[in-house]
């Protein structure tokens, strides 16, 4: 459950802004998966305000994040990624440091 705790702490304790480049790359991936114009996506984009981000898009998006960023998303993590900003902060925390 470490992933679960970690995401909670990121979301509620340290809501830092994710790096701009990571957010824009994730936006590009999501735009391809969901079929929406990338300019409509922001840190706040979420399944609740983006109709194209439905449950099937979410499955493909999670698969694509794993493929593109080389991270593993646990079941608990997957259930806690509520917005594009959440995803960016998660990937930022998980990605191996260069």
């Amino acid at each position: 459950m470490s992933g679960f705790t970690e995401v909670r702490s990121i979301r509620y304790a340290r809501p830092m802004s994710p790096p701009e480049s990571l957010l824009s790359k994730l936006s590009l991936v999501l735009s391809e998966i969901a079929g929406v114009n990338v300019t409509l996506l922001s840190e706040q984009s979420s399944p609740s305000n983006l109709p194209e981000w439905d449950s099937m898009t979410n499955i493909h998006f999670i698969g694509a994040i794993e493929e593109e960023f080389g991270v593993t998303i646990s079941t608990a993590d997957a259930l806690n990624l509520h917005s594009l900003g959440d995803v960016a902060r998660f990937v930022e925390a998980k990605q191996p440091r260069a």
Binding site: V29, E32, G35, A64, E68
Partner: peptide, 11 residues
């Protein structure tokens, strides 16, 4: 092929 490629092509 990546999921991105597949989804874009399918669209």
């Amino acid at each position: 092929a990546s999921t991105r490629t597949i989804l874009s092509r399918w669209r």
